[in-house]
Every structure is written in structure tokens, then in C-alpha cells.
Amino acid sequence: MLEAKELTKQYKGLRAVADYSVRIKQGEIRGLIGPNGAGKTTTFNLLTSLVKSTSGTIYFEGKDITGIRPDQIAEMGICRTFQNIRLFKNLTVLENVLIATQINKNYNFLSVLLSLPSFLKEEKRLINYSLEILETMGLLYAKDIKARNLPYGQQRKLEIARALAVKPKLLLLDEPAAGMNPKESLELMELIRLLRGKFKLTILLIEHDMKFVMNLCEQIQVLSYGMLIAEGTAEEIRNNPEVISAYLGRAAEGA
């Protein structure tokens, strides 16, 4: 579904990402791990065109998408969440999701201006779809609550709900379990598996919780200082001497 070849991002004398390559199959859940500053979020920014690469190419479903605009990336079916939550905090939970559905709206300016039946029908469809997503995410109870009033873990879920509203084919999750307790992390793990099946998703995620990554992801890549140092199954990564030295350490023993 997605293939990146030798992606590099250089800021003057600093290489944030160097020659990163990946091939992600449809339906796969893949992890991207590494220590802080390894270049993980920069990689996400390159894949979603929020940052332009210095060199390298990106293909999505066989099409070269290198350098196209972020909104075009989203329209093609690649959507993401952020490490630092970026909700519309003064809007309700439902409004946050509804905003994202507008990328798939099926009406024009005139129908909106005149409140034509076609516009009203489409708005009802988008509202119902948003409510369905909130129900799946366990957030239906909070649809009329302002996003800023949700607990942190629920805000994380709302970010995922908003991404789902775009109807992505490939979903990029940047530290989805950050700030969650072990029970919440386990619930999120099961939820991500459910979302993959229900919405026919392919998922690439960044996460520091090693139990979360090792138990969820079929394939894992490891970055260190912007360079890919390992790729494989959870078992292969857990026992890779270079990965243990660079990142996992004793954390691998409990993962």
C-alpha cells in the first residue's frame, strides 16, 4: 500500500532522517520505535507531506505522491494523529469529528447557501456517520461535551475518531497510548485491532510503550539518530543486539 524509498530530511548540517525506506502491506499494523530524537515524528511528517523531504520518493497504492500537499494526501486516504494533541478544544466532541467529515462532503456552495434538500440530507448523513464513529470509540456519551473537558486518554481517542472521519486507508498514529495507564493501553490495543477490521485500515504507529508495540504490531522498524537500524517481527526486534544496545535495554525483558 505504501512504499518509501531512501527518504532523507536534512536541516543544514543535521540529518533528522537518513535514507529511510519502508514497504507496508494492506491490512498490516506496523510499529516504528526508537529513542527520543530518533526521527520518528519527522518520518511521519515526511510521509504526510507536512515537511518536504530533502530527497527520496513516496508511493501510495502505486502512485508517486512525493511532495504533494497535505490536504491532497488526506484526500487520497492517508491520515494521522499527532504526538501533541491538536483538537479544536472549544468545540464539542461531535463538532470535532464533523469538521473532519467535510473532506468527503457531497454538496456545493449553492446548496449550502440555499439550504437545499440535498445539503440537509448530506449533513444528516455526515452527522450519523460521526455518531457511528464516536460509538465505536466509546465516546458517544461525550458528544456534546467540549473537547477540552475530556480526560486526557479520551482526548487521545477523540483524535483517532477525527482521523477516522476522513475515511482513511492508511492511518498513522503518533504515540496513541501516551499518558494512558496500563488498563487504558490494553483497551486501546484491542480497539485498534477492532478499527483495523471494521474500517479496513492499514496502520503505522509510533509508540514508546514496548508491551503495546510488541503485542500489537506484526512488523516493527527501529530508528536511531535518524537511521533505520533494524526491521522484523516483535521476537526478532526483542532479541536484536543492536536494538537492545541503542534503545530497548532491559525494557525488552518485560515486553
Rank of each mutant, 00 (worst) to 15 (best):
L2T: 01
L2Y: 12
K5T: 01
K5M: 03
Y11W: 13
A16W: 13
S21F: 12
S21K: 05
K25E: 15
Q26S: 13
Q26Y: 11
G27T: 04
R30W: 15
L32Y: 06
L32S: 09
I33V: 14
A38W: 14
T42Y: 14
L47W: 12
T48N: 04
L50V: 09
S55D: 03
G56K: 03
T57K: 13
G62V: 09
K63D: 08
Q72L: 11
A74E: 11
I78F: 06
C79R: 00
T81V: 02
Q83K: 04
N90W: 08
V93I: 12
V97D: 02
T101G: 10
T101M: 13
N104Y: 07
F109Y: 15
F109S: 07
F109G: 00
L110H: 13
L110P: 00
V112D: 07
L116Q: 09
F119W: 11
R125K: 14
S130L: 05
E132R: 00
E135G: 03
E135D: 10
A142T: 03
I145P: 00
R148C: 02
P151V: 03
L158W: 09
L158G: 06
A163H: 08
L164S: 01
A165I: 10
K167R: 15
K167N: 12
L173I: 01
L173P: 00
A177T: 05
A178K: 05
M180N: 03
M180R: 01
N181Y: 06
K183V: 05
E184W: 08
L186V: 01
L188D: 03
M189A: 08
E190H: 14
G197S: 12
L205T: 02
I206Y: 10
M210Q: 07
C217H: 02
E218M: 09
E218Y: 13
I220T: 06
I220L: 12
V222A: 05
L223T: 04
S224H: 15
S224R: 10
Y225S: 11
M227P: 01
A230V: 01
E231S: 08
T233H: 14
A234V: 06
R238L: 13
N239C: 05
N240M: 13
E242K: 14
V243R: 03
I244M: 08
L248C: 02
L248F: 11
G249N: 08
G254I: 14
A255L: 12
